[in-house]
Design a protein around this nucleic acid. Structure first.
Lengths: 207, 207, 207, 207
DNA sequence: CATGAATGAGTCTTCATTCAT
DNA sequence: AATGAATGAAGACTCATTCAT
């Protein structure tokens, strides 16, 4: 939704503004950041901001979408493996890719956390929509796995998809934002997967 | 942290203010609500607000804490059963108690969601602290279950506690806020528990 | 329409603000004056302006209405003579009273001219309403005169009322604003009345 | 005062711009219209506007003057009858011509009303000048009539000219703008003329 | 000359907090 | 202690005009 004036901008300047936006939102968060902060971080005149974006919300949405697109370039190669492999088997690799992306764009992760935690009702709508979509995609992959016999037929895939999504969205990203080392995060992910795969019940208890 | 002036208030007036605060925060959310909105909803003079609370943040924190205390009165009776029963076996009852509380205080749930999603950094700190504490308590209960042989010894209890916490915090409350019927939510909770208890792996696959 | 906060103000301060408003609107006119100009002229803080008035329009309307009320205190005594005398015979005295008021409130006259000439659509509505009402009142007086046989029965009183109104509104006030002496204005008024009373036709021409 | 760049423009484009200006000023009025509105209505680049006109005021003045010239083409034929006929006898025809022009250019009439009612001090000056000139011309015609014995020698012609001018400027045009039918307006004009010609005094009253 | 992007001063309005009564 | 009027520092957004291409 940035205006055409922004789209038509020299790639270099567009990049500078993109990074300025990240910096500004990163420092203060969506609610607290002012247009004055933003134009300072982007090194553009105040009027130009309104040439490029409708308002603060428009600019924030642009950052989120652009960041999401960038993230997909990390993840897409992995998704090609899905024909041959179970989704579950590449999940850890997916998390790893997410962390790689996070390491390359550390400020964006904090930004993402703030987005995830925004109380602005317009963002809330966008977010809910994004979440629903992401969970749906996950569910689609899991359905294939279930068809291939990798997952018990009676497992509720929506519940499963939500668990996987939230683990990724909240725990992994939050811990990354807190500075936890990649290896520690991956260990933690394996713990989650272990529970999800095998359950927590003492087997001797069952039979 | 409300001031002594507030503590010393007639219980009835204190209640009116508590409900006014809920109403005000419920309608507009923490960031957007103004002190003018608040004093109007509480039917107190503007000056009195600053007699009772440090500022908006202080008032919000008061609501959250007070609400939390109220919620515990729904949950405490269940926790007494923990001596005899496995935590896991009362988890569904706990969720049910949470939903009961939510049904008695519907505005608070929306408020809670907003709180959970607030991007204010002061709230963020409080929230992180609250979350850590809640997860710790959960982990404590699970530890007992593990000791009693209800949970496999190699299960990562921190991971498990986080999963249980987030399921409750995000999925259950969010769905309640969206108006999903109690029974549907409980069915969903059972699906989560099923996955966590027994895992998703096709058994024939294993052996 | 000023807020209660303004109504409740100390009479002295209210007067100061009233005069500040006149000064501000007088210097720049309704469209061009800024709230900054106004609060400076009134010697009140910027925030106070919004405590007292809804906005610039509200403040302007207050000035107009208050001025109108003041003007009526000059005119009311004359209207009492209407029982005994023809409206036409006191018209000159009415104009004189209007000029007296104008001499006591010279800035208001320029303000009035500006109001009369405002292109703001909200003012336009108010103005049209005011004008219609004033012409109606005039017409009422003329109707009595016609009934008493002072005016030819076939004279269109609405047309007459409009002529009298516009002479007063535009010519007299405009000339006063331009600094024309009272006596000269009254001479001019007599010329208008002469035409209206006796017509312009050369009598020998008629018969 | 448009710049030479505008004068040199293709007649067709000049016409398009003229009509765009009318549209823009018509919709929003002089004070409220922005240069952005104008260039949009004229379908010219923003930069071009400043190639053609000094500023908004210059453009507005151009419209008024151009409109006035157009209006004269409706009125000029009538003025030729003045050698043989009394001005007063063609006044109604003049008003009719004015209404004809208004019917052909309805937006301009509203524009004219707005102009007449503008509080902008630069327009005010222009307006006063225009008004003085128009009244002077009227007075010139009336002088001839008086010399020919159509008007009593003691009638104040300046007063008379003003009355005729204001009747035309305010009442006729305003009523047209309000959508009053031509025939009704002409009836009203006759009522004005009747008063002015014959006066309002009950003749029997006099002698 | 033509264009439309760039500029930043200027405007209204809101609001948390203080303070006089 | 209780009240609600007073305060002025921000903040978002607009817009006439300039200027680089």
């Amino acid at each position: 939704m940035p205006k055409n004036t922004f789209i038509g901008l020299h790639a270099e300047k567009r990049r500078r503004i993109y990074e300025g936006l990240i910096e500004a939102f990163y420092v203060a968060g969506y609610e607290a950041v002012t247009v004055a902060d933003i134009v300072k971080a982007c090194r553009i005149p105040r009027g130009s901001f309104y040439m490029y974006f409708e308002d603060k919300f428009d600019a924030f949405l642009y950052v989120l979408k652009h960041a999401q697109e960038e993230k997909m370039t990390y993840i897409n190669p992995l998704l090609k493996r899905l024909d041959r492999e179970a989704f579950f088997d590449i999940y850890e690799a997916l998390v790893k890719a997410g962390i790689d992306y996070a390491e390359d764009n550390p400020k964006l992760v904090k930004l993402w956390m703030r987005f995830y935690h925004s109380s602005n009702y317009r963002l809330d709508d966008y977010w809910r929509q994004f979440e629903t979509q992401a969970i749906d995609i996950l569910k689609g992959y899991l359905l294939k796995d279930q068809a291939r016999g990798y997952i018990r037929p009676d497992v509720d895939l929506l519940a499963l998809a939500k668990m996987l999504y939230h683990i990724q969205a909240i725990d992994i990203m939050e811990r990354f934002a807190q500075g936890v080392k990649t290896e520690a995060i991956l260990t933690s992910v394996r713990a989650f997967l272990d529970i999800i795969k095998f359950g927590i019940k003492e087997v001797s208890d069952e039979k």
